[in-house]
């Protein structure tokens, strides 16, 4: 079954004709060519596909596309501002070594956004809980946590 869904994507009204079994991740990557959102496992285990739906972080690989009807979706591309200016969270990850291979980075940053929007001054434990669903194999998380701490200082 196909259906026309309408939603807000990174601040713009969009629509797409989508089959019922499609997940949000597929629509973002294949229909809207927003490939910044990554598929690491397709099973909601690694968090690489994290995006915000109405401000809450979700695994877009498990989020049915039909469900975004009328909602607002923010992806990693949506954080970049006019003139290719990075969002303060993105900047903090760049400045403080929170990035190595970069594959987990977009999801990690979106989880951070959800965390800081709700709790702008988290403790280290709260930061770690906030990104507990985002796996990273390169960094050992130390510089990611530091990046988030620094981002929070400016938040």
């Amino acid at each position: 079954m196909k259906k026309l869904i309408r939603f807000t994507l990174n601040g713009h009204e969009v629509s797409a004709e989508v089959e019922s079994h499609r997940m949000l991740l597929e629509v973002l990557r294949n229909t809207f060519h927003l490939t910044g959102t990554k598929e690491g496992c397709g099973q909601g285990e690694c968090g690489a596909c994290t995006v915000l739906v109405d401000g809450l972080s979700v695994d877009s690989c498990l989020y049915p596309a039909f469900e975004v009807e009328g909602k607002s979706v923010t992806t990693i591309e949506g954080l970049v501002e006019e003139g290719s200016r990075l969002h303060p969270i993105q900047e903090a990850f760049v400045e403080h070594g929170g990035i190595q291979c970069g594959f987990c980075t977009p999801g990690m940053i979106m989880s951070t956004k959800a965390l800081l929007d709700e709790n702008p001054h988290p403790t280290d434990d709260e930061i770690k809980r906030g990104i507990s669903g985002n796996l990273c194999r390169c960094t050992g998380y130390v510089q990611i946590v530091e990046s988030i701490r620094k981002a929070a200082e400016k938040y």
Binding site: L34, T35, G36, T37, T75, I76, E77, L79, V80, S84, L86, Q90, E91, F93, V94, I99, C101, G102, T105, P106, I109
Partner: peptide
């Protein structure tokens, strides 16, 4: 390479 990776590019 960090900025492009942070931006999802």
């Amino acid at each position: 390479d960090a900025s492009d990776k942070a931006a999802g590019k």
